[in-house]
């Protein structure tokens, strides 16, 4: 991050320090004011599990969990999230043990190409944290911000139904641990 690119004559723009708790680890980062959270993850940190499908908040492939809530990381600037806690697809599993939602996606074949999958999984976990996922139609509706061009929707639905209760238990256990 040595260059401070501006047009000639303009005041140079400096990268700004922020702190992120990223997948359970505190990271001190330097970000430019124009860098989206998604580009920070993918290009600066090489955490490419979070995908860019449209860069306009239209496809959901970039969904991450910000302070436990699902957001489109392409629609927010990294600099706005100093001090935030961020979970990406890389931070869901515990070591080699898949998160129940990840395991259910494999078991139900809830993807084909896999490109929308990290966003689908983060979105599903976020949806359950919201207290949603009350029945099949609710899941379908609440997951409709995550496009899957391969059309694996029925299997995505089945995977989420299957993993919902275990994900709920895990979420409430985490909340009990927190002061």
């Amino acid at each position: 991050m040595s260059a401070t690119p501006t047009r000639e004559g303009a005041t140079p723009v400096a990268a700004c320090p922020i702190s992120l708790e990223l997948n359970g680890r505190t990271r001190q980062l330097e970000v430019y004011p124009w860098t989206t959270l998604l580009d920070l993850l993918r290009e600066q940190l090489q955490l490419t599990g979070t995908k860019k499908g449209c860069d306009h908040g239209q496809c959901g492939a970039c969904t991450v969990l910000l302070n436990g809530k699902r957001i489109n990381s392409c629609l927010t600037l990294a600099i706005m999230h100093d001090g935030a806690s961020l979970t990406t697809i890389e931070g869901l599993a515990e070591g080699d043990e898949l998160h129940p939602m990840q395991a259910a996606f494999v078991e139900h074949d809830a993807f084909q190409c896999g490109y929308c999958t990290p966003g689908q999984i983060c979105s599903a976990v976020g949806m359950i944290a919201e207290g949603r996922a009350n029945g099949r139609d609710d899941i379908r509706e609440q997951m409709s911000g995550n496009l899957c061009r391969c059309g694996a929707y029925p299997n995505i639905l089945a995977a989420i139904e299957d993993a919902a209760s275990e994900t709920r238990e895990r979420l409430s256990a985490v909340q009990q641990v927190k002061p």
């Binding site: 490419t48 979070t50 697809i89 898949l98 074949d109 993807f111 896999g114 999958t117």
Partner: peptide, 21 residues
């Protein structure tokens, strides 16, 4: 059978063309 590349895809470890550093 479940896909052999499934675990890579659900953990973000499957790298696509624009993701190689």
């Amino acid at each position: 059978l479940a896909r052999v590349d499934g675990p890579l895809k659900v953990t973000g470890q499957a790298h696509y063309a624009g993701e190689f550093h």
